[in-house]
C-alpha cells in the first residue's frame, strides 16, 4: 500500500538508525516493551503518559510538551508508531499526535504483531535520547468528537460503531478478551452503522488494500460525503478506523469520539438502540 502515513517493515529497517526518526511503541501493557521491542524504539503508555491522571481527558498541551521533551522527541522528527493489539493503541497515539499538530507521523503496518510473526529482530536495550524542547499546537478539534457532536449526528450524519457485532447489539459489554462488566448498559448510538475495525485488517494485523477498504464502507451504505464520527468503547479501536478513513482513504470530516461507549452508555436520558439493526433517530 503506498501512503506516506503507513510504512512497512522495509521502510522501518532502512530508517531505524536515522537521527530524526523516532520509533515509538505504544501499548497498554508496558511489559511488552520491557520484554523486547524494535531496535532504537522508545515507549509511550497510552494511559499513564497520554491520559490526565485525575480527570477523564487527555493530558493538556503543556503536559504533552513536557512528555515529548523528556522522551527526546523534537518537532521536526519523523515519529513512527507501532504497537500490539493490531496497532489499536498505536493508531490511537497516531491520532493523538495529529490532534496536537505533530508534522510527520507514520504508522508501521501490522505493528508489533506482524513484526513478531515475520520473525524480525526485537531487542531489550533501551535507547537514550537527549531532551528536547517540544512545542505542541492547540488541539485540532476537527478530528475529535464530543458527546454533543454525537447527539447532533444521530439521524443526520454518519455514526460508525467499530466494535464487534456482539458489543454493538448489546450482547457483550466489552471485548471478549476481558471479563464482561455489567455496570453499563449495552447497545449502540441510534442510526450508527456497525463496521467493526477488524474488517479493515488482515489476519497479521496489516491493513487491507485501499480498494478493499473503500468497499467495506461503501458496502455498508455509509455516505462518505457526510461528516463521520467513529466510536468504540474507549476510542482506540475507532482511532484505527479513523486512520483508515482519514489517512488512508483521504476522507475529510472524520472525527474520533474518544468518550465512546463508556461515556455514551452511561449518559442519562440519551437514546440507545439494541440489537443488530441501527435503529431510528
Amino acid at each position: 500500500m503506498s501512503n506516506q502515513a503507513l510504512i512497512d517493515a522495509e521502510w522501518a529497517l532502512a530508517h531505524l538508525d536515522d537521527a530524526n526518526a523516532v520509533f515509538i511503541e505504544v501499548d497498554e501493557d508496558t511489559d511488552a516493551y520491557a520484554g523486547n521491542h524494535i531496535r532504537n524504539a522508545i515507549a509511550l503508555n497510552w494511559k499513564t503518559d497520554l491520559q490526565d491522571p485525575v480527570r477523564r481527558d487527555f493530558v493538556n498541551k503543556e503536559q504533552f510538551e513536557a512528555l515529548l521533551s523528556a522522551k527526546g522527541v523534537a518537532n521536526d522528527d519523523t515519529v513512527v508508531l507501532y504497537g500490539g493489539n493490531n496497532n489499536w493503541f498505536a493508531a490511537y497515539a497516531y491520532w493523538y499526535f495529529k490532534l496536537y499538530g505533530h508534522g510527520d507521523v507514520r504508522l508501521l503496518d501490522g505493528g508489533r504483531k506482524k513484526w513478531e510473526l515475520d520473525g524480525r529482530e526485537l531487542v531489550s536495550e533501551v535507547p537514550s535520547r537527549a531532551e528536547t524542547k517540544y512545542v505542541a499546537k492547540d488541539q485540532d478539534l476537527s478530528i475529535r468528537a464530543f458527546r454533543e457532536d454525537v447527539l447532533r449526528a444521530i439521524g443526520t450524519q454518519n455514526l460508525v460503531d467499530v466494535r464487534s457485532p456482539d458489543e454493538y447489539a448489546g450482547r457483550l459489554l466489552a471485548p471478549a478478551h476481558l471479563p464482561q462488566e455489567a455496570a453499563r448498559i449495552g447497545g449502540h448510538i441510534p442510526t450508527a452503522a456497525n463496521i467493526p475495525w477488524s474488517k479493515a485488517a488482515n489476519e497479521d494485523g496489516s491493513f487491507k488494500s485501499l480498494a478493499e477498504l473503500k468497499a467495506i464502507y461503501e458496502g455498508a451504505g455509509v455516505d462518505l460525503g457526510k461528516d463521520t464520527i467513529a466510536y468504540c468503547r474507549i476510542g482506540e479501536r475507532s482511532a484505527h478506523s479513523w486512520f483508515v478513513l482519514h489517512e488512508l482513504l483521504g476522507v475529510k470530516n472524520v472525527s474520533n469520539y474518544d468518550g465512546s461507549w463508556t461515556e455514551y452508555g452511561s449518559l442519562v436520558g440519551v437514546p440507545v438502540a439494541v440489537g443488530d439493526e441501527p435503529g431510528t433517530a
Binding site: 501499548d27 497498554e28 501493557d29 511489559d31 511488552a32 497510552w46 494511559k47 491520559q51 477523564r56 500490539g84 493489539n85 489499536w88 493503541f89 466489552a174 471485548p175 478478551h177 476481558l178 471479563p179 462488566e181 468504540c232 468503547r233 474507549i234 482506540e236 479501536r237 463508556t262
Partner: peptide, 17 residues
C-alpha cells in the same frame, strides 16, 4: 476507565467470578 488492551495470555481468573 479500564482499557480495551489485551493482556498477554489473557486476564487472570483470580478476581473474576
Amino acid at each position: 476507565m479500564s482499557s480495551c488492551g489485551a493482556v498477554v495470555g489473557g486476564v487472570s481468573l483470580d478476581l473474576v467470578d
